[in-house]
């Protein structure tokens, strides 16, 4: 490290991140064309992957950027699915119901945020789990859901199977891209800096004029909305709504796994974590209990030995910033050209 001089500059984009954005755009175009050549099986699995990416990105935004660790995000996953069923039962098209359901989840999350954001740290985490359980029990009271018997999104049967698969795939791809773009721009904006300042030190952030409540609420509502979208899309793909499956704490466990392994607080980390989780699930889920035991063990190992996750480690070693949401302070004569 050469001597610190005052000839520093602030850098956001690097050449590699510009390439990365172009590359991400190309991947999206390729994925959007996939229904033309991919098999039904592949489309269906990719739909699941996109939903995992949404879940990981949302949990990462909440925990990695906002410092709000929640084990109750399944509340919004379940509500997204529940409202889709409810609205579709009124006779609306199931895919329109998905969009409306996600909006309702976003709206409902606001009053929840007013109460829950008063809690700190572990209290918030467990409090959210309580919220998820309460919402689960309330959904069970709805006669349409028939308690734990559940119900299926039967109106999807109006679509023929190939058409149905393609619509769900493209809808999920579009939702993932849209939600990631939303997060990217929010986190790069002034609000994003405020969010991270609060995470690092709330009092210090307040002293420089950041309003913690409003900022945290925004993040909370975005995360709830995104996870609501994920739950509604998962329902269209699975058809069957059994309340205890959707309100299961395993969804939060999966989100935590993806973010811890991929790299908490790294935008790219959540995406990488979702891909890793998806591959692990595809290859090893048939081993049953040992699969779940291994997931837990891996998450513990990462938090102990690689707390920044795989992406954090790659970023440290190679100084990669593909999707930069932060600022880098660099010496003027050492502007990052990725040639290290």
């Amino acid at each position: 490290m050469s001597q610190w001089t005052n000839s520093v500059t602030i850098q956001r984009w690097t050449p590699s991140s510009r390439y990365a954005i172009v590359f991400a755009g190309l991947v999206l175009v390729l994925l959007a064309l996939a229904p033309l050549f991919a098999s039904n099986g592949l489309l269906d699995r990719l739909t699941a992957l996109f939903i995992y990416v949404i879940l990981a990105a949302m949990w990462n935004a909440l925990a990695g950027y906002g410092g709000l660790i929640s084990v109750g995000q399944q509340a919004f996953f379940g509500l997204g699915a529940y409202f889709t069923i409810r609205i579709a039962d009124l006779g609306l098209d199931p895919f329109i119901s998905v969009a409306l359901a996600a909006l309702i989840v976003g709206v409902i999350s606001y009053p929840i945020s007013l109460v829950m954001l008063r809690l700190k740290g572990g209290e918030f985490a467990i409090g959210m789990w309580v919220v998820a359980s309460i919402l689960h029990l309330m959904v069970n009271l709805d006669g349409l859901i028939q308690g734990e018997t559940g119900i299926s999104l039967v109106s999807l049967n109006h679509y023929d199977s190939a058409q149905r698969l393609t619509i769900i795939y493209l809808l999920t791809l579009g939702s993932m891209a849209g939600l990631l773009a939303l997060l990217f721009f929010v986190l790069r904006s002034k609000t994003g800096s405020a969010i991270q300042a609060i995470r690092d030190n709330e009092e210090a952030a307040t002293s420089v004029g950041v309003k913690p409540e409003k900022t945290k609420q925004l993040l909370f509502v975005i995360a709830a909305f995104g996870i609501g979208v994920a739950g509604a899309l998962w329902l269209t793909s699975a058809t069957t709504f059994l309340p205890k499956t959707y309100f299961s704490v395993q969804w939060s466990a999966y989100m935590i796994f993806m973010v811890l392994v991929g790299g908490i607080g790294k935008f790219e980390g959540a995406i990488l974590g979702a891909i890793i989780f998806f591959l692990v699930e595809t290859w090893f889920s048939s081993t049953g209990v040992w699969y779940l035991v291994s997931l837990g063990a891996i998450a513990i190992a990462f938090s102990l030995f690689l707390p920044k996750g795989i992406w954090g480690e790659l970023e440290r070693r190679f100084n990669w910033h593909f999707l930069p949401v932060g600022y880098q302070v660099v010496e003027k004569n050492k502007i990052n050209t990725d040639k290290k």
Binding site: Q146, T149, I151, N157, A238, T239, T240
Partner: peptide, 29 residues
């Protein structure tokens, strides 16, 4: 129920047994 729903979605014939039929029929909408 999830297996039947997946078959109904894909147009694959599916036969099942051992579940009170009300939970299968009304439980799937």
């Amino acid at each position: 129920n999830p297996v039947s729903d997946a078959c109904e979605a894909a147009g694959i014939p599916c036969l099942s047994a051992v579940l009170p039929w009300e939970a299968w029929y009304f439980g799937r909408g």
